Amino acid sequence: MTVPEAIAALARGDAVTPVWRNLLGGLTFRLDAPGGAVRYAKWVAAGTPEIDLGAEAERLAWAGRWVPVPRVLQHGKDAGGEWLVTAAVPGVPAVDPRWVADPAVAAAAIGRGLRLLHDALPVAQCPFDWSVARRLRHADEHIAASAHSATGERSTVGGRSTVGEGPTDGAAGRRRVRLAEVRARLGEPPPVDRLVVCHGDACVPNTLLHGDGTFAAHVDLGSLGLADRWADLAVAAWSTEYNYGPGHDGHLYEGYGIEPDEERIAYYRLLWDVA
């Protein structure tokens, strides 16, 4: 993983270790100072969609008044990209091999950590929105972009001007139909069970655990905002299947202290997929 110039400059002689690359190309580095201090630096190239490190910095600063999250040290941007530097917090990600080998304990701890977040963050004081309405607007943008790219109008792929034609048109048409059907299903959300301040990306890697299997901290809060608690729960439990294998979603619900709500689980997983 190539270290961006901005991160090398921020390191100021600290050892730089790549630790994560997300699906959108965002990079995370560990910065180890000679004296033992540890920082983490996120970096994303300019113009990358879906990642707003400024929004994450704002949310971390707000949430950190009530729950354990990384402390923001620096945020900035230049022509090449944007970065966010935070102090290290105790614990390791719940995808650490230690916890992949003990998924029942890890999943229950994730559930307890999510309940702590939902109980601690004050709804009345939250300035951030992650509601169905907002996410559906985002979904509509995705669907419109997908439809536009499949109409045969000229677009650019890999630096080359292209136009949709031939056998792929049928597949694109079927995808448009499916997206329209899914969007129609999303138009009737279930009533809100309990309005909370949601994490916004409560997947397994975004919970840190202590060595004894207790909850340590939450990370990656760029989408934090007000929503039904099932918007978090449905995705968190779903993520245990991907990271630990099937059969551990129940441990997460048990750790949270709730019985599965199949209607809300199905709705919020579908919304996650589209939005």
Score class of each variant (00 low, 15 high):
L60S: 07
L60M: 06
L60Q: 04
L60D: 09
L60G: 05
A61V: 13
A61D: 13
A61R: 15
A61M: 06
W62F: 12
W62D: 10
A63R: 02
A63Q: 01
A63C: 10
G64K: 11
G64F: 05
R65P: 02
R65V: 09
R65G: 14
R65C: 02
R65L: 12
R65W: 01
R65E: 15
W66T: 06
W66Q: 11
P68L: 06
V69G: 07
V69E: 04
V69P: 05
V69Q: 02
P70F: 04
P70T: 07
P70L: 05
P70Y: 02
R71K: 07
R71L: 03
V72T: 05
V72S: 02
V72C: 06
V72K: 03
L73C: 10
L73Q: 11
L73W: 00
L73A: 13
L73F: 03
Q74G: 09
Q74E: 13
H75A: 08
H75M: 00
G76Q: 01
G76K: 02
G76E: 04
G76R: 01
G76W: 00
G76A: 02
K77L: 07
K77E: 14
K77V: 10
D78I: 02
D78K: 00
A79M: 00
A79S: 11
G80K: 01
G80S: 15
G80V: 01
G80Y: 00
G80N: 11
G81I: 01
G81P: 08
G81L: 04
G81M: 03
G81N: 02
W83V: 05
W83D: 08
W83L: 06
L84A: 09
L84K: 09
L84H: 07
L84V: 13
V85L: 14
T86Q: 07
T86H: 00
T86K: 00
T86W: 02
T86R: 00
T86I: 09
A87D: 10
A87G: 13
A87I: 02
A88T: 07
A88Y: 05
A88C: 04
A88V: 08
V89C: 13
V89I: 14
V89W: 06
P90M: 06
P90V: 00
G91R: 11
G91A: 14
V92G: 05
V92S: 12
P93A: 08
P93C: 07
P93K: 01
A94C: 04
A94G: 13
A94M: 09
V95G: 03
V95Q: 08
V95F: 09
D96Y: 03
D96N: 15
D96I: 05
D96P: 15
P97G: 11
P97D: 14
R98M: 12
R98T: 15
W99K: 10
W99T: 08
V100M: 11
V100K: 14
A101L: 12
A101T: 05
A101M: 09
A101H: 10
A101K: 12
D102R: 14
D102V: 12
D102K: 13
D102F: 01
D102I: 03
P103F: 04
P103V: 11
P103T: 06
A104E: 14
A104S: 15
A104Y: 05
V105T: 15
V105M: 14
V105W: 01
V105D: 04
A106Q: 10
A106Y: 14
A106T: 11
A106S: 11
A107D: 09
A107P: 15
A107E: 10
A107I: 10
A107W: 08
A108I: 06
A108V: 07
A108M: 09
A108W: 03
A108L: 06
A109F: 12
A109Y: 08
A109D: 07
